[in-house]
Amino acid sequence: MSSWDWQVFCKDTIDGEVVPGCFGGAGDVTYLDWLLSAWGWTLSVSALALVVALALGSLMGILRTTPHRGLVLLGNVWTELFRNIPLLVQIFLWYHVVPTLIPPLRGVPSFILVVIGLGLFTSARISEQVRAGIQSLAGGQRMAGLAMGFTLPQTYRHVLLPMAYRIIIPPLTSESMNIIKNSSVAFAVSISELTLFALQAQEETSRGIEVYLAVTGLYFVSAFALNRAMLFVENRVRVPGMIGGGGH
């Protein structure tokens, strides 16, 4: 392993021959092709899991701040359940256990199961953040909304949530970046994403360092791009006159 060999990415995945131009043509797949498709899988799993996590995490976080004991309990149980089991174990539960116990789920592709698993795991963390965001508004805003004649759902919709979400954008950003990192456990159920690519390509080519560097680099790039995107959102929704806001 004394010198670099980046040509490894130009090799055909079947016969190991270097393909000119590095991209395989009809029927041929180079390691570069495979790497890019693995990146695509990582991004797809992450993006879909983020949608699931945001939807369910928000719902559960909101439930935990309502005046109804039953709903608070539901939100609490949900959060504790999905937060206290390791992600990998949860993925195995979705992959090996759930389809056995619930036969209609047997045909569901493992990609979907991973999205659900990663989504629910992350929803517990997002539920914590949403709850904290709403509670940081103190009771005054809720009372002001209700005093204007808003119903409780209207008070959440127009008064509490618009501010709560603005407040929790920074922790939501790091949670979204965590999703990209955590999507790496999908390798354990044979989703052809970056980490599985790293494992297999390393074994086939014996160029572990080059392969790992490329994969690590793509994780970096993905997280960084997401971080910039969230900063853009944060600036767009900033409220004039608030801390860090536009001022007079």
Binding site: M177, K181, V185, F187, Q202, T216, Y219, F220
Partner: peptide, 15 residues
């Protein structure tokens, strides 16, 4: 903090 733990585990196992 910006690399997935699984990748870190693999890196060390390799290096």
């Amino acid at each position: 903090r910006s690399i997935p733990l699984v990748m870190v585990i693999l890196w060390f196992f390799l290096l």
